[in-house]
Design a protein around this nucleic acid. Structure first.
Lengths: 339, 339
DNA sequence: CTGAAAGCGCTTACAG
DNA sequence: CTGAAAGCGCTTACAG
């Protein structure tokens, strides 16, 4: 029963498939991969033999021989934000049917960890990489460039010339949130944010612009903390804000979990939402529409971003030129009861 | 710039490391892996050369030569339940520092999909597999057995003789929820469940047992649906239950998202929780402690399960005999305001 | 403790 | 459209 020391896997090999179908291994390989033109009758025989043997190609051998794996690496900053789970699922849905393996790297919003992940994953000779945003260390950037592995950036738009991105304008989204609150007649507007990753800061920028354009004090009521975003933190920050600025009448949260915590805390403290203070969240996570009151939020196209980025990468692998460098998928303000 | 057709990766190889450090490739390989006894001075030279070149071993070549990869496959039924995210994170935390890659397979609670994932992942020659529960197709079971890949089962206890598992008694947990409601003086008890995977049904069994032992009607107020669990569904099922059985005074939910939906719906309908109806959830997801009222829930050791399963697998790979076949990590009833 | 030889299971590049 | 040869970058098994 011990498998130590064995050199073979015991699994059927391409050579066996070839033997059983009466062709050479190369022809079997071509038939199985569907490349070149193999005579239809031979291709059928090979397929039948492979099926009969239960043959599944050895990815390691394949990667070694071709200097290219069938793996796609996806780098995300967090798994605890439902946002990225939805993106990941969409990526899988596109990649799996194409026989591509998805390697997930979570760098926990840590630039050094991202760099290490890139270094290690590059050794896997991935056929492509899906990255979150554009903000990474110079070393990471250089490794990626030197590797020649095709990359698509997710969530943000922009980046260096030639960089492919699928996402939406984070800044416009922050702007839209502020404009909505202003249209609702709110004047003492606060921004509550955690994590403070580059995308959060872009939203902050949009929020500030809208306030400035409306002639409002732009940064007085900002509560920014690098702590991870959570419901608990949202409750806490809301209480603090209210104690410091009892006249606040509108709040934009950089993520829905913060807004959910705040709306629940308001309920607990007897603060009427939206009468006394209106609230707008971000991402429109599943729970938000069920809060009391139901949360207004900006719905982000996270599944579409995953799908779009995966498809753009596939197009790249197929040698197609990607028409649009920056694919803007937009966002949608979901107005509900909290504003 | 075109990478098509290239056979080499352009990355430094073991041969280059060996040349630079003045030893043979085999010695370099051994030094880098830390196996056998390599003279300390040679090992140092090799390490220095590898660092200087930025050498990272080619996993494909390694897997091909040893008939064993450094990948561990984790199969989970869902990514949309925060439960499994926590487990996954804990697994990563144990495996990554050991240089093991974690391949995640989500089978969406679909037995056939799980079987396909197993078939494909076995081709990667994983050094181990982490599986969720024991319920899978005969074909899947046979493939796993034939492969000889060491497996550890997560979340449930039990399974065939010799099967390793790390989890807790789902049945006891269901029992504990019922007993708590009974102790609180509740007599018209309902069970609301979705998904209906094997673990949910084990909780149902424990719940029924406790009711029967207390001389209560055990299954009259059950609402079971195979739909995926969600907050929206919880709201809906709660409304339905209340319409059908206005005298219900206690509810156990098979997952916290259902309970969260119910508690929010109760708030909306003006149903007093727990005065009119007490509620107990399951898993103690992050939002539960912040609901209004704060939800009583059964906290499950999901991170500890991931950690324990990963460590058990590592012990197995190191050739250690795992002492306990079934590692029971227990659960904890978190009593809050809703019961 | 160290190494020369062989081989893992594929695909590339070159012929025909 | 098909194939014989070589090789990808490692590790195993066997010597010494």
């Amino acid at each position: 029963m011990s498998r130590t020391g064995s050199r073979t896997t015991g699994r059927p090999t391409l050579a066996e498939v070839a033997r059983l179908s009466g062709v050479s291994p190369i022809t079997a390989s071509r038939a199985l991969r569907g490349v070149s033109t193999v005579a239809p009758e031979l291709a059928e025989k090979v397929a039948a033999a492979a099926a009969a043997l239960g043959y599944v190609a050895n990815p390691a051998a394949r990667a070694l021989a071709s200097a290219r794996s069938h793996s796609v690496v996806v780098l995300i900053p967090s798994l605890s934000n439902q946002l990225f789970i939805d993106t990941l699922e969409a990526i899988h849905e596109v990649m799996r049917p194409r026989g591509l393996e998805v390697l997930i790297g979570n760098y926990h919003y840590d630039s050094e960890e991202e760099e290490n992940l890139i270094r290690n994953y590059l050794a896997y000779q991935p056929c492509g990489m899906l990255l979150t945003g554009f903000d990474r260390s110079d070393a990471a950037r250089q490794m990626l460039a030197a590797s020649g592995v095709p990359c698509v950036h997710m969530m943000e738009l922009g980046g260096e010339a030639g960089a492919l991105s699928v996402g939406f304008s984070q800044q416009q989204a922050g702007r839209a949130a502020a404009q909505h609150l202003i249209e609702r007649g709110r004047r003492r507007l606060a921004f509550i944010a955690a994590q403070l990753d580059p995308r959060v800061m872009q939203r902050a920028e949009g929020f500030r612009q809208a306030l400035a354009e409306a002639g409002l004090q732009a940064t007085e009521l900002e509560m920014l903390t690098p702590q991870p975003s959570s419901i608990a933190l949202g409750s806490e920050l809301f209480s603090q804000l209210l104690a410091q600025a009892p006249d606040v009448d509108g709040i934009f949260f950089c993520n829905d979990d913060l807004a959910q915590g705040a709306v629940l805390q308001a309920l607990r403290q007897g603060v009427e939402v939206p009468r006394q203070v209106a609230m707008v969240g971000f991402n429109d996570l599943p729970a938000s529409a069920h809060m009391v009151p139901r949360l207004t939020s900006i719905r982000t196209p996270r599944a579409a971003v995953g799908r779009g980025a995966a498809q753009a990468l596939l197009a790249l692998l197929d040698g197609k030129r990607v028409a649009t460098e920056q694919q803007d998928l937009g966002f949608e303000l979901m107005v509900r009861e909290s504003s």
